[in-house]
Design a protein around this nucleic acid. Structure first.
Lengths: 233, 233
DNA sequence: CAGTGGTCTAGACCACGAT
DNA sequence: TCGTGGTCTAGACCACTGA
């Protein structure tokens, strides 16, 4: 018989997936090491490594030096969310995007904000509030604090032509961020801005963005009722 | 002068990140090709490739054959969410996990469910309803439909010892899934089960899981008020 | 058509960590 | 201790796609 050939790392990955789904390699099972698989598949070890490493990144395999590679018993599904600029989201839905600046002021933030951003409680920050529209309908409400000592150029920007979201991406580098998703009941102010009933359940995103050890901006985006964030596993 | 050496793909990646953050390579800029960078960094092209490919996966670089590699102008942040078994979530918070089966029946699902799962409207499915508890307090409410023609063994399982969540992971392979996050107001039934006020804003996850072209299970998980799903960018 | 990234190979050395 | 995955190298060929 001729040995089946798996010449690309994708084809190796597919074969491994097939064996996992077919329960030839059941959950928790130790699978052969890279060298053996390379020989069986008729390819180099690097190719097998690429295939297995990629599967491990999705949580389907558990790899440890010396201990070998196992099929994950409790696969922790890794869902990747694309957090893009809101304008992109709206336009991707085939709708016309627009935004409206509601408030812009330089003021002392609530202590919860200054604490989260590791700023002194007396330091003023730039506060912005804006409404994002899709086909003229309220889509999301944005509340944002920007540290002027970190992004001084923001003081000169009016943010009526370009959303703060996009302006910051272009002008303020960031290294990492924390993000949280949750649900809140609409306050009266939110309800009025979004054109919904007070108390309606709203999907929200809270994001805190850092450049090295400096907090850059803190934003809460409150979506209109019914908003869904989708992805695949 | 001695050329700086970047011998690991991580160190190459850090140097590239540094140049991006320092605006040496501003957003939208075309950066040198792999071969040139390899020479400059004193490493092989494969090492540069690994560094740049990994950055491209996070959305920070945009790579195209022949066109070269550019710094993304509008980086679409890729947030990776770990969707694990609820028991793991609770235990990771240092709380005691428990669950309670509320309902278990074989019945005809609503047409919305059979349609989404591409099952005939007259075919009965297994319906489960369970409450997940953390330290004895309601944590999440789970509503699930399972296709018995796809997972016949489920008919024999009582699901009082093990949550359906974990049982399915162990017994029903899946190839992919759709997942959606949103917010709803608590119904009276949900409010009672979760011990909150009716109308409270609840964070929910809807998931539809597939094995090849067969829908396996459809589940809605409704979390108690205040629940947050966190991740990093 | 030609430049760029995408990938494969064979071999090598190394870091980690289970035993 | 020593098996396993993690990585690097130098070279090669290929696929895609912009000019």
């Amino acid at each position: 018989m001729t040995k089946p050939q798996f010449r690309s790392w994708q084809s190796v990955q597919e074969e491994v997936l097939r064996r996992i789904h077919a329960r030839e390699w059941p959950p928790g099972d130790l699978i052969p090491n890279e060298a053996d698989l390379a020989e069986e598949f008729g390819c180099s070890r690097a190719t097998v490594n690429r295939a297995l490493r990629t599967l491990a990144e999705t949580g389907l395999l558990d790899r440890r030096r010396k201990a070998g590679t196992r099929v994950a018993a409790q696969p922790v599904a890794k869902a990747t969310l694309d957090i893009s600029v809101i304008r992109m989201d709206v336009e991707a839905r085939g709708q016309r995007y627009d935004h409206r600046l509601i408030a812009r002021k330089t003021t002392i933030p609530p202590t919860a904000v200054s604490a989260a951003m590791q700023s002194s409680p007396e330091t003023a920050m730039l506060y912005l509030k804006a409404l994002h529209l899709a086909d003229g309908q309220p889509y999301a409400l944005e509340d944002r604090w920007i540290r002027l000592d970190v992004v001084p150029e923001a003081a000169e920007e009016r943010f009526d032509e370009i959303s703060s979201n996009e302006w910051l991406l272009r002008h303020a580098p960031y290294t990492h961020g924390d993000i949280a998703f949750s649900a809140v009941n609409a306050t009266d102010v939110e309800a009025q801005a979004l054109g919904c009933a007070a108390g309606a359940a709203l999907f929200i995103i809270d994001r805190l963005t850092w450049n090295r050890s400096d907090a850059v901006t803190k934003v809460r985006i409150v979506f209109a009722p019914g908003h869904q964030m989708r992805t695949v596993l």
